[in-house]
Simulated assay, not measured.
Amino acid sequence: MKTENSNITTMMSFVFLGFSDTPNLQWILFGVFLFIYLTVLVCNSIIILIIKIDPALHTPMYFFLGNFSFLEICYVTVTIPRMLMDLQTQKGHILFLACATQMCFILMLGSTECLLLTVMAYDRYVAICNPLHYPLVMNHKVCIQLVAASWNTTIPAAIGQTWQIFSLPFCGSHTINHFFCDIPPILQLACGDTFVNEIAVYVAVVVFVTTPFVLIIVSYGKIISGILKLSSARRRSKAFSTCSSHLTVVVLFYGTATITYLQPKPNQSEGMGKLISLFYTVFIPTLNPIIYTLRNKDITMALRKLLAQLLA
């Protein structure tokens, strides 16, 4: 840190408190998070691999799922390796620029996940409610454009949001009662009025979280209506099976993210905030490949086929 004439302290680095309130569990937590990280890497990589090599999975639905799995790998890589390093060294120091970079990537990847989940809901809507036009509407070019839009749309918003927050003056304490550079704990360290920043956060949440969630709910309203109109019980069962995995992921991710960013500031508990953040940054990405694998017969069959080839 360096102190200027205005008596405002410019932070050159921050210190994560992380899980310092449980010093006896540091190495246990290190082992747990390392296991989780390796699980996310391995499971999502397997999903990407079997989608790539199995011709039966070369469909828009699994094209989006493969991109979603890659996104999950990127998402946990932004947070967990840093957590592991802090648990090992028990220091928690992070440079100002590194903190801003981490926040920018978290915002970008989190927003991309919201948009990609919406694209996946739209894909299911077209497949079930408009099956005759599905190959035409969801052709390969359109799929690539939808994925590219999901990634590219969030970049300027994430950079702008991060620049706005880290342009604030920081004074007093430089300790972050969290395990990564998230918006709520960083804003608590800022000097002066943060009203404009909080409004910007709410606007971003409405654009990248609430609006996609509403679109997903509308899509699933029409999807469920379309499924109930199917004459075959077998087709209804298969349609519900392919949609239930995606809907479970949507509820888990959107629920925890909304609680974090839309909860009024005075009502936020730092301990509860860390717990909720753990859910949507660590535990839910771990559950996602398990949810998609266990509840998707095509993925399960492709996985068995791959294992049989490897063991043959």
Results as ranks from 00 to 15, higher is better:
Leu17Met: 09
Ser237Arg: 13
Tyr280Phe: 14
Ser69Ile: 00
Leu71His: 08
Thr286Asp: 07
Leu95His: 08
Val207Trp: 02
Thr112His: 05
Ala100Ile: 01
Ile128Met: 10
Ile36Trp: 01
Leu228Pro: 00
Asn7Ser: 11
Val42Thr: 14
Pro264Lys: 08
Ile36Phe: 05
Ala204Glu: 07
Ala149Ser: 13
Thr175Val: 11
Ser232Met: 07
Thr281Phe: 08
Leu117Trp: 03
Ile51Cys: 15
Gly221Lys: 01
Ser269Asp: 11
Phe14Trp: 12
Ile227Ala: 03
Phe166Asp: 12
Phe279His: 03
Val201Ala: 08
Leu146Tyr: 09
Trp27Phe: 09
Ile223Asn: 02
Arg82Pro: 01
Thr118Phe: 10
Ala98Val: 02
Thr248Asn: 03
Met103Ser: 05
Phe213Pro: 02
Asn296Ala: 06
Gly160Asp: 09
Thr10Val: 14
Ile176Ala: 05
Arg124Ala: 09
Asp54Ser: 15
Asp182Ile: 01
Val206Trp: 06
Tyr220Asp: 05
Cys74Val: 03
Leu34Pro: 00
Gln164Ala: 15
Ile8Glu: 13
Asn7Arg: 07
Ile276Thr: 13
Leu187Gln: 09
Gln161Lys: 11
Asn67His: 11
Arg295Val: 00
Ala200Asn: 10
Ser6Gly: 08
Phe253Pro: 05
Thr260Val: 12
Gln268Ser: 07
Leu307Thr: 08
Leu84Arg: 07
His246Arg: 04
Leu107Ile: 15
Thr281Leu: 13
Met83Glu: 10
Ala149Arg: 09
Phe213Thr: 15
Thr79Leu: 11
Ile199Val: 15
Phe170Glu: 04
Phe208His: 13
Thr118Ala: 14
Thr89Glu: 11
Gln102Phe: 07
Cys191Asn: 09
Met11His: 14
Ile176Tyr: 02
Ala204Val: 00
Pro212Met: 10
Thr286Ile: 02
Phe35Trp: 07
Val15Tyr: 12
Cys43Val: 04
Gly92Glu: 05
Ile227Cys: 05
Leu287Phe: 10
Phe30Val: 03
Leu87Thr: 09
Thr258Tyr: 09
Leu38Gly: 01
